[in-house]
């Protein structure tokens, strides 16, 4: 009976995994397809990978995407972590209000958030890399706060206060007491923010100015004309690289658990 359940569970997990990874497999195969047509297989080639490194447009979009993800995640941490600490210290009513406001960008449809920010930006600042960065920071902060808040609730914040009470300076207390406790939450918040920013299309689409392209907006622009196969090659490289990094990361943390 238990064996039977094991087998069914395994098959089902396999089914979902196939569902999740089938399109990714298709894209990886496409990156080696020498035919420009997406439906026919023209034989194996690495030429798209070679061409990729001569395609400045795509490389530029890639750099923009990574800078945007890294910058917005980092700034979101810098604002979000102290924000979470401060909100946690608030009274019940103000705490609830702040958390409700934090939830707005998550609850709102991306298209509404994107449009609202765009309407704001066109009145005050030019649409550019800067405006996209501001927009990404805005939707990243809530994820940082929601990742860090459970850690803050778990830890005894009064430890920090006790440390201060015993004469430690705020900088010392922060780095030796608070930071180690919060680090897992900060890291998962950063990772989450980075991932979402890399993958975002809608908000970027509305808040970017002409001339600024991330990988997402560039791909969207190519849909009608046909996706450049170099794009598949780049995506495959990113995916494989991240898979490797994450495997090593989870491998290490799995070892630590044991």
């Amino acid at each position: 009976m238990k064996r039977f359940k094991d087998i069914i569970s395994g098959i089902y997990i396999g089914f979902i995994a196939v569902l999740l990874y089938a399109p990714i497999l298709v894209l990886i195969v496409e990156s080696f397809n020498s035919s420009r047509s997406r439906v026919t297989w023209g034989g194996f080639t690495l030429s798209w990978y070679v061409k990729l490194f001569n395609n400045n447009q795509i490389l530029e979009a890639f750099i923009t995407t990574v800078l945007l993800a890294f910058g917005s995640a980092a700034i979101a941490i810098l604002i979000g972590v102290p924000g979470a600490l401060g909100i946690h210290a608030m009274g019940r009513k103000r705490y609830k209000t702040m958390m409700a406001l934090t939830n707005i960008p998550m609850l709102n449809a991306d298209i509404v958030t994107g449009i609202a920010l765009m309407l704001w930006f066109v009145h005050f600042i030019p649409l550019s890399f800067g405006s996209v960065l501001l927009a990404h920071i805005s939707f990243n902060i809530p994820y940082v706060i929601l990742s860090v808040m459970p850690r803050i609730q778990q830890m005894n914040v009064s430890i920090y206060e006790a440390t201060r009470d015993l004469g430690a300076g705020p900088v010392y207390a922060f780095f030796h007491v608070l930071l180690p406790e919060l680090l897992p939450g900060i890291l998962s918040g950063f990772f989450m923010a980075f991932t979402l920013s890399m993958d975002d299309f809608v908000i970027t689409y509305f808040t970017k100015g002409a001339g600024v392209n991330t990988l997402s907006t560039m791909i969207y622009g190519q849909i009608k004309k046909g996706i450049k196969p170099e794009m598949y090659a780049l995506s495959t490289l990113i995916f494989v690289l991240v898979s490797l990094l994450l495997s090593i990361g989870t491998g290490i943390s799995a070892k630590k658990e044991h």
């Binding site: 999740l20 990714i24 997402s216 791909i219 996706i227």
Partner: peptide, 28 residues
């Protein structure tokens, strides 16, 4: 049931697809 609960590995499986661009996945 299979005890994959506490392991980061299972989360990893769910989050990893997000690292292939979303529009490309839809095109796939």
């Amino acid at each position: 049931h299979l005890g994959l609960g506490k392991r980061t590995f299972s989360l990893f499986i769910l989050i990893l697809p997000m690292w292939m661009n979303f529009i490309l996945r839809i095109l796939a």
